[in-house]
């Protein structure tokens, strides 16, 4: 069946099979390979994208259900060749090791900061609870999100689209 969806602000029309996941459409159909498949069961969060502004595991979303939906992936964050402040904060805080989990963490952080610009540490941890890093730990990731929140808080709010 054909579905129409908006991906990173661009209208797309794709042919999907009933069993295809949103993850398959993004990676194989649209070649947006920044979204990663880790566990394929919703446990690791590497495939996190925003669906109508909410974080979701794209491995657990049936593509056919996405007709008419608005999807934001990691590729949609940078503007005009400049990293998004959340991405910059991850780089500056050294919150990246192998990098496989990073797109998912960044997307979860993005959903958090759109809804809660000045989150407590507890709110950050709750927002990231569905993302797993297997290289090291979470201290630098936590500090990256704090840094991003501070950075975004000083920006003109109109620049930060939901």
């Amino acid at each position: 069946m054909r579905i129409r969806l908006r991906v990173n602000g661009r209208e797309r029309e794709v042919e999907v099979a009933a069993g295809d996941r949103l993850l398959d459409v993004l990676r194989d159909g649209l070649h947006l390979t920044g979204t990663k498949e880790g566990c394929g069961e919703g446990e690791c969060g590497a495939c996190t994208v925003l669906v109508d502004g909410r974080p979701a595991n794209s491995c657990l979303v049936l593509a056919a259900q996405m007709d008419g939906c608005d999807i934001l992936t990691i590729e949609g964050l940078a503007e005009a060749g400049r990293l998004h402040p959340i991405q910059e904060a991850f780089v500056e805080a050294g919150a990246v090791q192998c990098g496989f989990c990073t797109p998912g963490f960044v997307m979860s952080a993005h959903a958090l900061l759109a809804a809660t610009p000045n989150p407590s540490d507890e709110q950050i941890l709750e927002a990231l609870e569905g993302n797993v890093c297997r290289c090291t730990g979470y201290a630098k990731i936590l500090s990256a999100v704090r840094r991003a929140a501070a950075q975004l808080g000083t920006r003109d709010p109109s620049r930060e689209a939901a």
Partner: peptide, 12 residues
């Protein structure tokens, strides 16, 4: 419900 799954799971 806050302990069910994760933020991503609870979205859906």
């Amino acid at each position: 419900l806050r302990s069910l799954g994760s933020t991503q799971i609870r979205s859906r």
